[in-house]
Design a protein around this nucleic acid. Structure first.
Lengths: 150, 150
DNA sequence: GTTATATTATACCATTACGGTCAAATAGAA
DNA sequence: TTCTATTTGACCGTAATGGTATAATATAAC
């Protein structure tokens, strides 16, 4: 596939959206709750949360009643920020940089075209804020809704 | 990576561009010449050519002085046609179809957004003709130019 | 008919990326 | 001190990618 969203990225965005939906709450969200609510295994959620923390998107608190939260307000975090934190590199560049890949003077029409599309996509990702994707348990389908009491 | 052009696809487009540049010529282009000119190994070029033929993009003639050519005029073949022939499936759909992937009612904002982007990209691919990417040996960088005499 | 040169069609293989799991370590609240 | 969190990175099976190899077949030219 040419354009595919890795599950890791997909979950990462969803996790950020969920955190955004709970950004006003004072207490951090434990990974367990993220995993259970978002239908991801705990180890996998842990891994993603780890990457998001290293990438500077979320902060975390250890110990009992610990958990994670968005580091900055959801209106200031873009979709691009999240994807970048998850390690999404620039896309076409390597093909263009590779020596002896194509006999045409770089950038050829083909790569030029794809680089344009890439640039456009990056711009769109940068224009979308995590706040746009915010949600809470209220938005879940009924069958997934867990009535957790605070 | 989210958006990456497989080498196979990249070469496929380049092969079609080359064939487009020689579309007016009466004789078909042997795979050997494609491979040598486009800096691809012969077996790999063979594989790609095979897929393009099965996909209905090119036709071929066997035997001595055989080779391949575009099946239709390059102005009538879109970039999308080529990518589709190479097996590029639709992209986000599987995530959306997968049951129990996401607790939100489908399509959620996130997939909705990515599906929009996908749809836009497909449209762009459909608007670009192979004729737009046509080239011949004349366009090669000097160091790759082989002076072949007809 | 034979030979040389094409494509045809498929099997195969090495490497990397993906999609996770596991567990030991650390840190903090109670 | 204990319980419950996150932390960190090693690990691993499977699938996709990026090719190669080869036996078969078709055609043109001699």
């Amino acid at each position: 596939m040419l354009f595919s969203l890795k599950k890791e990225y997909d979950h990462a965005i969803r996790i950020c959206g969920f955190l955004a939906g709970h950004y006003d709450q004072p207490e951090p969200i434990p990974v367990r709750r993220l995993a259970a609510g978002l239908l991801v295994s705990r180890p996998f959620a842990t891994k993603i949360v780890y990457q998001l923390r290293v990438g500077g998107i979320i902060s975390s608190e250890q110990g009992k009643y610990g958990g994670v939260r968005l580091k900055r307000p959801p209106e200031t975090i873009t979709l691009y920020d999240v994807l970048e934190a998850m390690g999404m590199g620039r896309m076409i560049s390597e093909c263009v940089l590779e020596e002896d890949f194509c006999p045409l003077p770089a950038p050829c029409k083909i790569h030029g075209f794809f680089m344009e599309q890439e640039a456009r996509l990056v711009k769109v990702f940068q224009s979308r804020k995590i706040a746009d994707f915010a949600f809470t348990e209220e938005d879940f389908e009924e069958k997934y809704r867990q009535h957790h009491h605070d």
